[in-house]
Design a protein around this nucleic acid. Structure first.
Lengths: 101, 101
DNA sequence: CTGCATCCGGAATGATACTG
DNA sequence: CAGTATCATTCCGGATGCAG
């Protein structure tokens, strides 16, 4: 399996990269992510578990009934890839010379 | 919608980035992609059509019943993003010094 | 009240047969 | 060879239930 395929095993499922992008701004709580991304709670819980297993993020217990999700070193290492993808979408011309407006 | 979300609209569906990675090595025919990636023919046809619409690749008619798929300028611009993701999966954290701005 | 599990309908994906 | 048609399976999104 190529390295890219391995990356996509973790980051390919819907919302995974968007969650990481959000966490690049700092630790977030479950409810914050759910509202900001407008994602179903079940899917969010699943993605967070997968990303934690993959070592991309970790749970930080805050206090009673409240925890935050923060990127690990490995999660922070995704900053470059996310920046590349964002720049690609931002800077690109649309199909065959059409211009974005 | 964030730029990242816009990128994922095109590149998020399964196999999309893997197809682009393959085409970075040069134009490929339908059957080559199908065998190398081991992807269902219907899904491959759908992805190719989507990526063509998004301006990432284009069809090159070769001869009777034969055509090749090649990256456009815009598709080639994904080389950096794919490299970042591959390096990330390869275990390496992206060196801060090499990060593109 | 926040964090998650469960249930369900619809969309995306996979496997395979078939056509030009 | 390059797809399309069809059906099974898995994934996603939304609503709801429930425990801490």
């Amino acid at each position: 399996m190529s390295d890219l395929a391995a990356a996509l095993d973790v980051l390919g499922p819907r919302w995974a990269l968007l969650i990481v992008e959000r966490l690049l701004e700092g630790p977030q709580r479950y409810g914050d992510l759910q509202r900001d991304l407008d994602i179903g709670t079940n899917v969010l819980a699943t993605r967070l578990r997968e990303l934690e297993t993959a070592g991309v993020l970790r749970r930080l217990p805050l206090r009673h009934n409240t925890r935050a999700y923060a990127l690990t070193e490995r999660g922070l290492a995704l900053r470059g890839a996310i920046a590349e993808l964002s720049r690609w979408a931002a800077g690109g011309a649309a199909p065959d010379g059409l211009q974005r407006v």
